[in-house]
Structure formats: structure tokens, C-alpha cells
Computed example of a mutant assay.
Amino acid sequence: MNSDINFNKSPDGLLPAVIQDAETGKVLMLGYMNSQAYEKTLAENIVTFFSRSKKRLWTKGETSGNFLHVREMLADCDGDTLLIKATPTGPVCHTGADTCFEEVNQGKGQFLNYLQAIIHDRKVNPSDKSYTTTLFNRGVNKIAQKVGEEAVELVIEAKDNNDDLFKGEAADLLFHFLVLLEQKNMDLDDIVSVLKSRHIKQ
């Protein structure tokens, strides 16, 4: 168990657990965990709560099959609230909604931050088996050239009607662009800030 988590802070031994989609960043639901629910979640990588109405451990999805697969578990600064980043296998709310707050759970932009972290790791911890590492070894000019090549290929595919090929080329361009940003010691947020400033002026 994480030593920063203190279930004794609550008289009933229950701590609130905020469930967040690991890819979209959307808050999916709020549940409660005691130490047994936490340990079970940690062991199985599937979210289990303590049901205050049923007075027992309750694995989310045990009836519906819509489980929450754990990607990361964090405690807040006081050790009395949990943040669990998870991947849902279906609608989270019992009403059939994506979230218990009636929000549509869309937008996988959070994955770009994860991908950035992987690219950064390949730069500071090179691996002979990594394609990303070979790009960094070639230097900024070659990386920039690769971005240009991928951009041209995307333009070519845009003129045709094969959506799968177009999406593949778009993914290639985006990936190599992130590598170029890392090589230039920049973050995607730096570019987003520029876009936001332009949006405000428009």
C-alpha cells in the first residue's frame, strides 16, 4: 500500500476515489474505497470500491461488464483522496451515460502527452532497438527533413479517397513533429500557447 495514503483520517475508513479516463482526461465518476478495496484494486488493476449502500466490496462492472482498468493511482497531498486514471470498457454510469456527470467521454488528446513522455525518454535513455533513438542520432536536420517528407506524403494522400492511408500519414507526420519538438527542447504546450494567443486576437 502507498504509505502516503491514510485511511484512518476518515472515521469510517473510507476515502473518496475520483476516477479519470486515462486517455481523455474526463472525470468519469466518484466512488469510495477502504483499505481492502484499495488493495484489491492494486492487485487486480481493476477498480473496486466499497459500496456504502451494499456494505461490501464492489468491483465496478461486476454486473454490467463495464470494468475500469487501472493505468495509474495517485494520492493527494493530504493522503485522504485518491485519483485513479483508468480505461473504461464501456459506459460508466448506471444510466448508460459515458460518465456519471452526463458528459460525453470523447477526445484522446491526452495520449499526445503520454507519447511526448515516451519520446523524451528515448532521447535521454537511448536504445539501439528504438526507431525514435535513431532519429535523434541523426540530428535536427534529418529530423526536420523527415517531417517535410511526411508532410508531402500527407498532401498526396489528401488528394485521394483512402481514409485509412490518409490517417496513417497524418499519424506519421504528427509523430515526427513531436520528435522534432523534443529535439528543439520544446513542448507541445508551447505550440498550443501560440495557438491560444492567436485565437484570443481573432
Rank of each mutant, 00 (worst) to 15 (best):
Asp21Glu: 02
Ala22Ile: 05
Thr24Arg: 00
Gly25His: 00
Gly25Phe: 01
Met29Asp: 07
Leu30Arg: 08
Gly31Ile: 07
Tyr32Ile: 03
Met33Ser: 00
Asn34Val: 06
Gln36Pro: 04
Gln36Thr: 12
Gln36Glu: 15
Ala37Ile: 11
Glu39Gly: 01
Lys40Gly: 00
Lys40Val: 13
Ala43Thr: 12
Ile46Pro: 02
Ile46Val: 14
Val47Trp: 08
Thr48Lys: 13
Phe49Met: 11
Phe49Gln: 07
Phe49Pro: 00
Phe50Val: 02
Lys54Ser: 10
Lys54Glu: 14
Lys54Asn: 12
Lys55Gly: 00
Arg56Lys: 15
Leu57Phe: 09
Leu57Gly: 04
Thr59Arg: 15
Thr59Cys: 11
Gly61Val: 03
Gly61His: 03
Glu62Gly: 07
Thr63Tyr: 09
Gly65Glu: 02
Phe67Thr: 09
Leu68Glu: 04
His69Gly: 00
Val70Ile: 15
Glu72Pro: 01
Met73Phe: 13
Leu74Cys: 11
Ala75Thr: 15
Cys77Ser: 15
Asp78Tyr: 14
Gly79Met: 09
Thr81Pro: 02
Leu82Pro: 04
Ile84Ala: 05
Ala86Cys: 14
Ala86Gln: 08
Thr87Gln: 15
Thr89Gly: 03
Thr89Ala: 11
Gly90Pro: 06
Pro91Phe: 13
Val92Ile: 01
Cys93Pro: 11
Thr95Asp: 08
Thr95Ala: 04
Thr95Lys: 09
Gly96Leu: 10
Gly96Pro: 11
Gly96Val: 09
Gly96Asn: 10
Ala97Lys: 08
Ala97Glu: 14
Asp98Thr: 05
Asp98Tyr: 03
Thr99Tyr: 00
Glu103Cys: 04
Glu103Gly: 02
Val104Ser: 12
Val104Asn: 13
Lys108Met: 12
Lys108Glu: 06
Gly109His: 02
Gln110Arg: 10
Gln110Glu: 09
Gln110Gly: 10
Phe111Pro: 00
Phe111Lys: 11
Phe111Ala: 09
Asn113Asp: 15
Asn113Trp: 14
Tyr114His: 14
Tyr114Val: 13
Tyr114Lys: 15
Leu115Gln: 08
Gln116Arg: 12
His120Val: 00
Asp121Phe: 07
Lys123Leu: 11
Asn125Thr: 05
Asn125Ser: 07
Pro126Arg: 02
Ser130Ala: 12
Ser130Leu: 10
